[in-house]
Simulated assay, not measured.
Amino acid sequence: MTARRRPTMKDVARHAGVSVSTVSYVLNDSGPVATDRRNRVLDAIRVLEYSPNESARNLKRRSASTIGMVVPELANQFFAMVTEGVQRAASARDVLVVLVVPDASQQPEESQTRLLRSQRVDGVIYLSGTGTAPASLYDLARSGPVLLVDEQIPGLELPAIVCDSRRGAREVAAHVLEMGHRRLAVIGGPAALWTSQQRLAGYREALAGAGIDPDQVPVHNGDYRQASGSKLARQALCETSGPRPTALLCANDLMAIGAIEACRELGLRVPQDVSIVGFDDLPLSSLLTPRLTSVRQPAHDMGFQAGSALLDQLEGTTVEPIPPLPVSVELRDSVCPPQEET
């Protein structure tokens, strides 16, 4: 069988009895076309089953056809929700998203950015897993727009969509302190990550405001994964020279879940023996036993705004700085006043 030739704009114009420019005006809504001519063009498109060559169209009008999204992993629901938001923004403008996740066999972020260069994407949304910028990211930024999401990288002046992590951490820590806790420990994220630093700064502000020396509160840095939270909670609860902490401030929900798991294995009740809070407010956080008190970040909105801002930039629109998106503290069952020691 002979493959059917794909119809062109010239074929549509010939069938409709109009010029190619008229067909272009109808397809792109870029010029005035009389109603009868417009209807003839639309009829020809239906009859011939014509579909535009998007790559060619995008080259001519200099708009995006493909953007890249670098994300550390998708096992973390927060990253998945941000990615979904980016996809929704891109889909609304008929733009494809090339999703890149780490290659464990290489330096992850270097392999990610190399792949994006090879795909010739129009722009990149970058969600860092380390807080540092690989050399290849600078190459991407020189060749096209790069936008950061949920992150700021020192020394790399790029637009970023972030949440007010510092305020959220301050408010959730203040709630724990208002419940009467004075012996606390922090299960923090990667020390180099901007989000980790912001959350730690918020915790420290709440501690100082309650008259507690922040330097006297131990900080255990993990990697935002559940296993890390479990390991560090054990350290915080068992490897202390004084009385054990009555509350753990966890810098994300996955580590908080790991901390709850560690408490159960140690025979400690949550929240009666140890109160625990998280950050992100993943969908599963309200389904845990006990339900987890956490800071809600609008993950989907962050992704959608990041995607929209990058596409605006690619279309030549000046993107104004976007202030940090608001967060909220969701109070649930994982915090209660410290129990009297027997």
Rank of each mutant, 00 (worst) to 15 (best):
D281L: 06
R182F: 05
E330L: 13
R167F: 08
D11Y: 06
A16I: 10
V335S: 02
S111Q: 14
V18Q: 10
L137C: 11
R199G: 09
V12C: 06
R332W: 05
S118G: 02
R142S: 15
D139W: 05
L207H: 05
L115S: 12
A206R: 06
W194A: 14
G129V: 07
T318S: 13
S128F: 03
F79E: 04
M69R: 03
P245Y: 01
M9Q: 15
V295G: 03
Q339N: 07
P243H: 03
W194S: 14
L115V: 14
A89R: 07
S143Q: 15
G123S: 08
Q235Y: 02
E171P: 00
V12W: 00
A262H: 05
V295W: 05
A262I: 08
C238K: 13
V82K: 07
A104I: 11
V100R: 03
R183S: 11
V47C: 01
L314C: 09
Q107R: 15
D139F: 01
I187C: 05
C163R: 01
G123M: 06
Q305K: 13
V146C: 11
I153K: 11
L282H: 09
H181A: 09
G222Y: 04
S91D: 12
V277F: 06
E239I: 00
T195L: 01
V186I: 15
T289E: 15
P245A: 03
T240R: 12
T83K: 02
R166V: 00
G189Y: 03
T2R: 07
V335T: 06
L59G: 08
F78Y: 15
L254S: 06
A92I: 02
D122P: 05
T2W: 00
Q77S: 13
N53I: 09
V270I: 07
C238N: 12
E261D: 14
H15G: 00
S118H: 14
C250A: 01
G188Y: 00
G85W: 02
A141R: 12
R291W: 04
V329L: 07
S241V: 09
L200Y: 03
Q152I: 15
P271W: 03
N76I: 09
Q87A: 13
A247I: 00
A3E: 07
R46A: 15
V176S: 07
V162K: 05
V186Y: 11
D281S: 12
H15F: 09
N53Y: 10
A236D: 06
G123A: 07
Q112G: 01
G155H: 11
S196M: 02
I187A: 05
T113E: 05
E178H: 13
E265A: 15
A133Y: 00
R166P: 01
L200H: 08
A259E: 02
V270M: 11
G229I: 07
S91K: 10
V172Q: 01
A89L: 10
C163K: 01
R182A: 04
V329N: 06
V270R: 04
P214N: 10
P159F: 12
T293S: 14
P337C: 06
V146M: 10
T317A: 14
A89T: 08
V121H: 01
